[in-house]
Every structure is written in C-alpha cells, then in structure tokens.
Design a protein around this nucleic acid. Sequence first.
DNA 1: ACCGCACATCAATGTCAACTGATGAGGTCC
DNA 2: GGACCTCATCAGTTGACATTGATGTGCGGT
Lengths: 144, 144
Amino acid sequence: MSIRDRLNFLFETVRPVGKPRYSVREVAEAIKRDQGFDISAAYINYICTGERENPGVQQIRALARFFGVPAAFLLDDGDQSHVTRELDQLRAAVEVTEKLRAADDAMDDPCVRVIALKARGLSPSHLKLVSTMLDQVREIEGLP
Amino acid sequence: MSIRDRLNFLFETVRPVGKPRYSVREVAEAIKRDQGFDISAAYINYICTGERENPGVQQIRALARFFGVPAAFLLDDGDQSHVTRELDQLRAAVEVTEKLRAADDAMDDPCVRVIALKARGLSPSHLKLVSTMLDQVREIEGLP
DNA sequence: ACCGCACATCAATGTCAACTGATGAGGTCC
DNA sequence: GGACCTCATCAGTTGACATTGATGTGCGGT
C-alpha cells in the first residue's frame, strides 16, 4: 500500500458532486486557493502514476487537507492493522457523504469535505447511526 | 510547531539509558541497521536545526519508527487540538517509560521504545492507570 | 466537421533535498 | 600536554523532486 495507491484511493472515493472524480488540475487550484500552497497539477499526476515515490511532507499535508483526511492516511508507516482500520473509517465517512450528497445536490464540495472530515472521527457504530438516520430522513422526504 | 520542533522534542524526551540524548549519528546508524533505510547523520542534524524544511516522507517515517512513534507525530497537519492531544499522549507515554526505565536499569533501548509505542495508543486514563500500577509495584519492591 | 475547452501526460529546466568528506570543538585516557 | 575518539556542523557535489510549458486526446457546442 504505497502513497500512489492511497492517493488514487482518495481520488476514487472522495468525489465532487457532478463528476466521477476530481481532476488533478482542480485539486491543484483548490489547494492554491484554500491553503495558499503551490503544487502543480502535473506533480499530483506524477504521484498518482507512481513516478514520484518520495514527495515532501508539505505536499502530502496539502493533498490530505484537500481530501479532508489526516495526513497520516497518505503515510504507510508499516502499522497495517491501524492503517486498514483508518481506511475502513474513511470508507464509512465517504459512505455518509454519499448519502448527504444525494440528499442535497446543491451542497458544494467544501461542505462535503468538511462533513467527511467531521464524520471520520466517529466510531463505526455512530457512523452507522448517522447513516440510518439519513435513510429515515430521506424516506420522510420521499426520496429514494 | 514545525517538524524541527517535533524532532527536537523527540530527541529530548526519548532518551537512551546512560546518556542525556541520542546522537544524530546513533540515530542514523540505528535506522540503517534496523530498517535498512539510508539516512545521513548530517541530514538529521539539518532537520533539527531547521535548515531543511520539507523532508521526504520516507525520511520522516524512518525517524518516527526509530523513536517508536507514529509518523503522524512529525507531521503538523494544522489540526492543533488533535496534535497537542497526541503530544500529551506522547508525554504520558514517555513518563511511563521513565518509570519503567527507573525500575529496571538493565532494560535496553529497543524495549523502552517498544513500550513507548505500545503505551501511546492508550487513552490518558489508561496511561494514568498503568502509571499508578507502576508506582504501587515500585512501593512493594521498596524502590523510590 | 470544425472549433474550443478541459484533461492527462511528456519534455525540459531549475531548485533544493540528501549525501560524502572535511573541519573543528569538546571530552577522555595515557 | 598530547594522541585519540566522538560529536555536531560546514562546504561541495549529486541526484531527485517539482515546476513550467508544450503536446496529444476526448468531448460538448455551434
């Protein structure tokens, strides 16, 4: 599980509203705009393709902050059980954001990311609770 | 709280048995020996003095593993409350290792580091519990 | 069909991370 | 006091990272 794999995982799971995934240019521009940190779109692509294996910590932090996950996600520190547990939490958080996103198409990307960040710290049982609550809300409002 | 500060914090808190602190050369050689990863002593010193601000993730991981802490410690991801909480946990873990070290001077460095690593994941209340238990054990054995 | 836009990727460049070897300071043993 | 060792730090070099700009491709609009 390399940095390349983790970043691709983030690209595939944390998605903007209308599109299947963020573009590398979008990410680079958002990081520049929101964090004031310069990172080129080409370089993000380099990491995704595995052409750069040892990026600086500042680049990692910027990417992690954009996707709303702690920077430790992009670092495989060898503690695999811990890592996979975190990834499960991320999956759960993404699942919640998917529901939130479906519930309100007008919600823009930053909000989704913030909610993903807030949901991530929750225990799996609480995430499931929120998920169930959202299902009920959607049923009340007559949504699929 | 930069990487420089955090690394210096580790140097000052995680200490070998007889000496006040590890030398940069010791750390570099131990990383080479234990992890098979090459890092120069001069470069570790560069990070400590703040002369290098954006080290690669592999260097960070190697240093974190040597000191027995998760790599996230050396990454200030801006989430200050989270960070300080982690640092408090580290302080508590170090406190425990200090007690263990005092209780058994024959304990060598790797064990101390492993215990610090294991203690770190515990909640503050559990760390306090372990600490209290150690106090009682020491009292039973007639140690200060 | 053509144009324009956004996208990922490639090529070329410069800047800095990271190493090697040297230097000098502080300490210990003889 | 001098030889020796270890330490942190400096100077010089190499190589990788990271950027800019160019290229080709795919898609929606007119």
